[in-house]
Amino acid sequence: MHPLAAAPDGPVAIPPVVERLAAGDAVTPVWRNELGGLTFRLGDDRYVKWFAGGHPEIDFAAEAERLVWAGPFVTVPEVLEVGRAGDDQWLVTAAIAGGSAVSPRWLADPQRAAEELGRGLRMLHDTLPVAACPFTWSVEERVARFEERVAAGPGPGDTRPGNTTPTDWMPEHRGLSIENVRETLNRMPPLDLVVCHGDACAPNTLIDDSGRFTGHVDLGILGVADRWADLAVAAWSTVWNYGPGYESAVYAAYGVEAGDADAAERIRYYRLLWDVS
């Protein structure tokens, strides 16, 4: 998981709109993201993502579009409802088989989880049709977002670190200046385009009890990009979730050699871009 995203560890107030959507089914909080958005399970067969307030990184209507587009090709949640009222926005989806790769079951078997993370990501990249994809997640768009956030600084309600000042970045990048980052991001590696998940971290990969990858969730920024934009961060997320030593399992299961200079450059580049954008 991102260091600031996790399952809630205390009582969670249920928003009125979530109570309404539950229609009498049990409501169970299952996730809180780094911006304060919440995901709830409704009964046994539905999930709802809820967020209050405006933020450019939260757009459930855009996520619903991506899920509907990807659904005929890969296993992703079926969209049941998407809506907005006042400060609230929500997305209701049908449950799909499997549990998160950061559930207790898979935290206890990180080697297998990391392998399935790589296999699942390769399946996604091999299956989604690049030429038919109407969405992008390009370096240019993401660098522009970085520049916008640096220029604006943190705004009201913008509580996510990692985008505005070097002290907010991950430890690997805190020695860099804004200018260092610009110089690095201007040296984009050659592109190897696929349809990327956009947030291919371990929590967004589902695995069943037998240890088989079953699907992906949280595809709100799915789009065409270099495969390493997903792959570098997917492997990085194993460090946050399982500890060191499992990145190589992701790369091996995906089917790439990550030990040469070209791969190392791509990994460094896309991890920096992820951190600052």
Rank of each mutant, 00 (worst) to 15 (best):
I178L: 14
P190R: 14
V217A: 10
A200Q: 09
P244Q: 15
W228M: 10
N180Q: 13
V233F: 05
V224F: 06
R187V: 12
V217M: 08
H197I: 03
W169I: 00
S248E: 11
A232L: 06
Y242T: 04
S237K: 04
T214R: 07
C196N: 13
T214H: 04
P190D: 15
T238N: 07
Y251F: 14
P244N: 15
N186A: 15
L185T: 04
E179W: 03
A234D: 00
C201L: 13
A200I: 07
P203Q: 03
L191R: 13
E183F: 03
E179S: 12
A225F: 05
I178S: 03
P166I: 06
S210P: 02
N186H: 10
A234L: 05
W240N: 11
G211H: 01
D209A: 13
R174K: 11
P171N: 08
G175M: 02
R182P: 01
R212E: 00
D208G: 06
P203K: 06
C201V: 13
S210T: 08
I178H: 06
T184A: 11
G175T: 02
A229H: 12
A249T: 06
D199W: 03
W236I: 03
G245H: 11
R174F: 00
A252N: 11
S177D: 04
L206S: 06
Y251Q: 02
L193F: 02
C196A: 15
A200H: 03
N241W: 07
D208M: 05
E179N: 13
P203I: 02
A234M: 03
S210A: 15
D208K: 01
G175I: 00
L206F: 05
G175Y: 00
S237M: 07
W236L: 15
L185W: 00
A234K: 02
W236R: 14
D209L: 02
E183S: 12
T205Y: 00
E183Q: 14
V233L: 12
P189G: 14
D226R: 09
S248I: 04
D226K: 11
A202C: 11
R182L: 04
D218I: 08
P190Y: 07
P171E: 03
H216G: 05
V217P: 05
A252S: 14
G211A: 04
V239F: 07
V239Q: 12
W236V: 04
W240I: 04
